[in-house]
Design a protein around this nucleic acid. Sequence first.
DNA 1: ACTGTATGACAAG
DNA 2: TTGTCCTACAGTT
Length: 259
Amino acid sequence: MPEGHTLHRLAGELQELVGERVAASSPQGRFAADAVDGAVVAGVEAYGKHLLVDLVDVPGVHVHLGMRGKLLRFAPVTGAPMPQVRLRLATPDVAWDLIAPSTCELLDAAGRARLLAGLGPDPLRADADPAEARRRLQGFPGSVGAALMDQSVLAGVGNVFRAEILHALRIAPDRPASRLTDAEVDALWSGLAAMMGQGVADGRIITVDVPPGQDRADVPEAVARRVYKRDACADCGTPVVTSTLQGRTVYACPRCQPA
DNA sequence: ACTGTATGACAAG
DNA sequence: TTGTCCTACAGTT
């Protein structure tokens, strides 16, 4: 489920490679792993949906999972990677296999700067500027639903978080972003920071209330969200309305989020 | 064993 | 707006 929370969680897990010399290989052959094979990992960071593995003395690796990408961890290392693995980064103790990413490329300092320049503030990053987020949201020339999906407005929000945060704040997706009140914009930022942060902690997106004592890991996927991919709104039971915006399905409750 | 669909983003037309 | 990447899984046959 690669929205921003997935990448930030992975970045946290990949800290185990920092300071380690890693063997790099590309069984699938579509990444020039020789260029980074044997390098020492200097740091791993997530910016929005992008993952940056910085290496000592050589360009870093830029990964974007796209819609289908996955990073799988094997510890101990049980054997050779599957043939479709784009990139394996491995130490003697652990292997990380990248499957089906939309991007896996070398990225030097200039490329990194160019990438980050195209991203809006990331609610999951401590160094993000909420005031900049407000400016970019209210300056967006379209609906708030479109704004939230634009990574140059906010980085890391995807289709699930869009649906759930707008529902949580009772904002209809087709409201013009320029007409959001200051209070709504601030609530979007802080609400996303909280919701996405919970996503990092859970390793998936759960927006329904979970009774104390119940393990969040036990919440079935089909009822983990309030409107996303639901037939009926989890809050009021009203049938969820779907529409299509720029090729993506938008979910909203017409009662909780009136136009 | 198939078919349809998906959390993303880009290029082409 | 559509096609593409070309995996994984849920649902259907």
